[in-house]
C-alpha cells in the first residue's frame, strides 16, 4: 500500500473549486430550463383546450372575437408557404456566400467587405426588414400585400444567420482534408462539394435550423408586409395572407377568453411545426454526417 511515485493527490482547494464550478454549471442548465418548462407548460396546458380538428381545418372567416370555434388553417398554410419561400431565397444565397468567404475570398477586399456587411445584416432588426420590404416592394414597386412580400422580409433576416453559421463551420474543416483532395487531382469546386461541405454538414444544418426557427416565429415583418386576413388564401403571390405568429398576435390582442384560447392554441401549433422542422433537419444532419462513422 505504499505509493512511491511522485504523484500527489489533488489538493483540497483545487478539488473544491472544481466541485463549485461543476455545481454552478449544473445550476446554469437548470436555470435555463425553468423558462422552457414554464413556457411549454403554459402553451400545452392552455393550448390543448382548442387543439382539435376544427382548429386545424377551419379559418376565421365569419367568426367574431366573441364567438367560440374557428381555427388557424389559413395561418398554418400561410406560414408554411412564407417560410418555404424565404428558405428557398435565403439558404442558397447564404450558403454560397459562406463558401465564397471561406474558400474563395482569401481575405481579399471583397471578402472583407462582404464579411463586414454580413455582420451588419445580423443586426438588421426584424421590424426594419419589414419596413424595407413594405416601402421597396409594396409602395415603390406597387406590389400587393402578399405572402411573398413577407417571405422577402424573412429571407433578409435569414441570410446572415445562414452565412455566419455556415462560415463558422466551414472554417473548422481541417485544411489538410482539402489539401489531400487537391493532391488527388480533384478540382476545387468538387473538393468543396464532396469533401468540405459533407464534413461541415452537421454544423451547417444546425445553423440553418436555427435560422428557420428564428424566422418562423417572426411577427413584426409580417405585420407590415403580409397584412391580416381571416380567410384562406393559398396563393402566396396574390393578396393578403395570414401567418401563425401574426394569428397568435392578432388573437392575443382580442379581449375575450375564446380569442385568448385560440392564441394559445396557435402558439402550440406554431411550436409543433417548428419542432418538427428541427427534428427533420437534425435527422438529416445526423444521417448525412461523417461524424456518425467517426464516433
Amino acid at each position: 500500500m505504499i505509493v512511491q511515485t511522485g504523484i500527489q493527490p489533488i489538493s483540497v482547494g483545487r478539488r473544491a473549486k472544481d466541485r463549485i464550478i461543476q455545481m454552478l454549471i449544473f445550476l446554469a442548465f437548470a436555470l435555463a430550463l425553468i423558462p422552457l418548462v414554464s413556457v411549454l407548460w403554459m402553451v400545452v396546458g392552455n393550448g390543448m383546450q382548442r387543439f382539435d380538428l376544427e382548429f386545424l381545418t377551419h379559418s376565421m372567416r365569419d367568426i367574431g372575437a366573441r364567438d367560440v370555434g374557428g381555427g388557424a388553417y389559413h395561418a398554418i398554410v400561410g406560414t408554411l408557404e412564407q417560410v418555404l419561400l424565404a428558405s428557398l431565397i435565403a439558404i442558397p444565397i447564404g450558403l454560397l456566400t459562406a463558401i465564397y468567404l471561406v474558400e474563395y475570398g482569401n481575405g481579399g477586399r471583397l471578402a472583407r467587405t462582404i464579411g463586414f456587411f454580413v455582420d451588419v445584416m445580423t443586426g438588421v432588426p426584424s421590424v426594419v426588414s419589414g419596413l424595407f420590404v413594405l416601402a421597396f416592394w409594396i409602395l415603390v414597386l406597387g406590389m400587393p400585400f402578399s405572402g411573398f412580400a413577407g417571405a422577402l422580409a424573412l429571407s433578409i433576416l435569414m441570410m446572415p444567420v445562414v452565412v455566419r453559421s455556415a462560415e463558422e463551420m466551414l472554417r473548422l474543416v481541417p485544411r489538410e482534408l482539402r489539401e489531400a483532395s487537391y493532391a488527388l487531382g480533384v478540382p476545387q469546386w468538387r473538393t468543396i462539394v464532396k469533401v468540405v461541405l459533407p464534413t461541415a454538414s452537421t454544423g451547417i444544418v444546425t445553423g440553418v435550423m436555427l435560422a428557420v426557427a428564428r424566422v418562423a416565429g417572426e411577427t413584426a415583418p409580417l405585420l407590415l408586409t403580409v397584412f391580416f386576413t381571416d380567410s384562406i388564401n393559398n396563393d402566396p403571390f396574390q393578396g393578403p395572407q395570414m401567418g401563425l405568429p401574426l394569428y397568435v398576435f392578432d388573437q392575443a390582442g382580442r379581449p375575450t377568453d375564446s380569442a385568448i384560447d385560440r392564441a394559445w392554441t396557435g402558439a402550440l401549433t406554431l411550436i409543433l411545426i417548428v419542432m418538427l422542422l428541427n427534428l427533420v433537419a437534425r435527422l438529416i444532419g445526423w444521417w448525412r454526417s461523417p461524424a456518425r462513422r467517426r464516433s
Partner: peptide, 17 residues
C-alpha cells in the same frame, strides 16, 4: 436538442408568456 427547443420558441409566444 432541449436547448435548440428553447431557440425554437417564437418571440410572440415569449410575449404571450
Amino acid at each position: 436538442y432541449l436547448v435548440d427547443l428553447l431557440a425554437a420558441v417564437p418571440s410572440v409566444v415569449y410575449g404571450l408568456w
